[in-house]
Computed example of a mutant assay.
Amino acid sequence: MSRRVCFALDLVDDADLIADYERAHAPGAVWPEVTRGIRDKGFTDMEIWRVADRLVMIAEVADDWPRHLDAAGKAVDARWEAAMDHFQRPLSCAGEEEKWVPMRRIYSLGEQAS
Rank of each mutant, 00 (worst) to 15 (best):
G28R: 02
A29I: 00
E111W: 07
D40F: 04
E60A: 10
A82Y: 05
L91M: 13
V76K: 04
P32Y: 01
A24V: 01
E111Y: 06
D70S: 04
F43A: 12
D70R: 01
M103K: 05
D63P: 06
W80V: 09
G95H: 04
D16F: 09
A8Y: 00
E33G: 00
E22F: 01
I38H: 01
D13M: 02
D45I: 11
L69V: 00
A15V: 11
A19G: 08
L69R: 00
A62Q: 13
P32M: 01
H68S: 15
F7Q: 11
E47Y: 14
A59R: 01
E97W: 08
D53L: 05
I18W: 00
D45Q: 13
D77G: 11
P90N: 13
W80T: 13
M103F: 08
L17S: 12
A59K: 02
T35V: 14
A26H: 03
L17Q: 10
D70N: 10
A52K: 14
D53P: 04
W31K: 04
H86P: 13
D10A: 14
L69M: 00
Y21W: 02
P90S: 14
H25M: 00
I106H: 07
W100S: 05
A59Q: 02
V51M: 12
E96N: 09
S92A: 15
K41E: 15
E22V: 06
D85Y: 09
G110R: 07
D20F: 07
W80A: 13
R4K: 15
S92R: 13
A15N: 06
F87M: 07
H86Q: 09
T44M: 02
W80E: 06
G110I: 03
V12T: 10
P32G: 03
A62W: 02
E81F: 08
R39A: 13
K41I: 08
E96I: 09
R67S: 07
D40S: 09
G42V: 00
G110Y: 04
I106G: 08
V101W: 07
L9N: 14
W80I: 06
A72P: 05
M1N: 07
A24Q: 03
E111F: 07
C6Q: 09
F7R: 10
K74C: 13
R54K: 06
K74R: 14
P66I: 02
A8D: 03
R104E: 13
A24K: 08
E96A: 14
R79Y: 03
V12L: 08
C6I: 08
L9K: 12
A8P: 01
D20V: 07
I58V: 12
E47C: 10
D63I: 08
L11M: 06
V30L: 03
F43E: 04
L11N: 06
K41W: 11
M103H: 07
V5D: 05
V56T: 08
D16C: 14
H86R: 15
A83V: 12
H25A: 02
Y21A: 03
T35W: 10
K41Q: 13
P66V: 01
